[in-house]
Design a protein around this nucleic acid. Structure first.
Lengths: 212, 212
DNA sequence: TAGCATACTGAACATGAGTTCAGTCGACGA
DNA sequence: TCGTCGACTGAACTCATGTTCAGTATGCTA
């Protein structure tokens, strides 16, 4: 079996859930069959439905499990807001992921699936992150750490979307710049450039104030 | 039928291809059945395989068709580079899409699917866009329109990824800020904020302030 | 010990998928 | 007029999928 390595003393139910999480993240919910999941977990297909009722039930359980994992990430984030305010580098969601989860974790890919399939769970997650980003920006503005924005909601969405983009397009970015941006090396290069743009901008304002 | 409105004088083969493009874009390749496509095109399932050989053949045909459409978008982009250089606002990929394709076009959603499924066609597209963005930045730097970057490749990837993210997360963004960012109204708000950040930055560089 | 609930399995079932096939219809050239 | 070719269809076939079911084993409780 491919999952023996981390079975340990987990219950069969947990083993099935983990196998499903990994397969769902890699291949997508629809492309994964109950038989694949059962095989990956080293059990019979009937046991999967015994524990989770149906494939939808399993999916719901996996969603809930991943949701809890993301929530803990959330808590860590709240805690690190102080650092974000104190330091002068932007702590991206991708960076938080890379720090919170081991390299082989299927959770980043699972978040990707959630956001891309227009899943309600993904929408809820995005909404919470958006609110948190919005509040963080407000706090930063209060202490004068950000340049004021005429449209704080759009700015929050812009920053959040930029962060998530790295997660969504990780593979394409890796191919383009030659290094996986979720490795420490890639993260360093990425963060440096992001910080530069967010602090000084990327383009020089046109001298003439006359615009169409 | 739902596609009668634009059938016109198209051949049945083209009608099938269009119906498949729309359904693939909306629901994903795997979630769409041959019978759905046939029904949407007002045709029997057997005719679909008669014209395209198999579902994979149909998918390949749709990919090729969409690829040609994106290539034409590409050409337009090259042509508009002058404007991008002359004006002082960043012309995003999402903006190009909104201008090139009618509001109801399935092509943005199809590109989304291409990028998300790690499709080779999507990877090739991303690679070409990356190279073009890189060159554009070089040109802009030459004429002093950008602040110099220590890592031009990463900066190009960063800007491109930010643009594409809006396409990928369109729905979530719409829910968060209350307006679809691909409509003229939404685009205006989004572009204004993006331009502001890209010109002046979002954060104030931390001086030697005492930090808690 | 008896009784019972729970974990678990192998085999079968029902359904929906992609595909095949025999055949109809109409256009067009000899 | 005949014959052929391509567009097109309805029905059937094959297969994989999610699910069900009858039954076994193991431990817990009384």
């Amino acid at each position: 079996m491919s999952s023996v390595d981390e079975d340990g003393d987990l219950t069969a139910k947990a083993v099935i859930r983990n196998a499903a999480l990994r397969l769902f993240a890699e291949l997508g919910h629809d492309a994964v069959t109950m038989r694949q999941i059962a095989a990956a977990a080293g059990v019979s297909p009937a046991l999967v439905v015994h524990h989770f009722g149906s494939k939808d039930g399993l999916r719901a359980a996996v969603d809930a499990y991943a949701g809890r994992a993301f929530d803990s990430l959330f808590a860590m984030d709240e805690h690190d807001v102080a650092d974000a305010v104190a330091g002068d580098n932007w702590m991206s969601v991708a960076e938080m992921f890379a720090r919170a989860f081991p390299p082989g974790s299927p959770l980043p890919a699972y978040l990707r699936r959630l956001l891309l399939t227009n899943d309600p769970a993904g929408a809820a997650l995005f909404g919470r992150w958006f609110n948190q980003t919005h509040q963080l920006l407000d706090s930063l503005t209060e202490i004068g750490a950000t340049r004021p924005s005429e449209d704080p909601a759009v700015r929050a969405a812009f920053l959040l979307v930029n962060d998530l983009a790295l997660l969504l397009l990780r593979n394409q970015v890796a191919a383009a710049i030659g290094v996986d941006p979720l490795t420490p090396e890639g993260m360093a290069r990425w963060a440096k450039e992001v910080t530069a743009v967010y602090q000084q901008g990327a383009f020089v304002s046109a001298p003439e104030e006359e615009q169409s």
